[in-house]
Design a binder for these strands. Sequence first.
DNA 1: TATCTTGTTAATCG
DNA 2: ACGATTAACAAGAT
Length: 269
Amino acid sequence: MPELPEIANRTREINNLLVGKQISTIDILQPKCLNMDPQVFQKSLVNATILGARYKGKWIFVETSQGWLLLNMGMGGEMILTTPDNLPEKHRLIFHFSDQTCLAVNFWWFGYAHSVAVNELDQHEMSAKLGPNALDLSLLEFQELLGNRKGALKSFLLNQSNIAGIGNAYIHDILFFAKLHPLRSIPSLSNEEISNLYHGIQKGLRMSLDKGGAFYELNLHGQKGGFLMEDLVIAYREDQPCPECGTPIIKIKTGSNSSFICPNCQPLI
DNA sequence: TATCTTGTTAATCG
DNA sequence: ACGATTAACAAGAT
């Protein structure tokens, strides 16, 4: 569940479906996603009761009676609430609950499940340095965030220590909504462009947030998100006409990743 | 076989 | 100190 819309939905589902459940055992099929020895991980969370969840950027913070379980789904994956006799084929971790249900966690590629003691959350470096949630900023705060920054716009937005929750799937449409090229330098942005970008972030993330996240991710019931391929405006639509001007959408390299842009609506300079 | 990818860190260079 | 670039890491699809 890579980006903020999916993470926010999964967090809400955890609050609705998992609160009150007690972890009885944990199966660890992929020890490398942990931040400690598997036995220590198990000991830290077995018998814990789930109290609630919140998120920051792409990290889900599950609060338990014995400390925090921090989840980052990396480049994609599922968390399915099911039973041990009905497990999905692929899974890396299984949290078994005392009510005979279980949460099966799968990472398509990389992902993290970290155990952090109650009072040591600020010592978890990967989450402690995250910037503010992309949807929790005011326009003024966003303007201040961009204040003295240099460099390219896209890499700034993808850097989670600046602003948390935007990834390389939603950013294509976000930048299109704002009519900004991904390689625009931050100091070159006018106040109006910064305002357009702020509203582009809100629009780009909220559309999917309100629909339960992207179609390529599953919720805790194993159902796909309601934000569909056709809801994407220009992302992954190479060679198709721009909905604003008809110019064919192009795919370009931006550093180590790719960007889909309308070369007419999002000029560089 | 080679390349791509919804993430993040570390290393390196300027 | 900061920004840009690349490689690396548990995979799977094309």
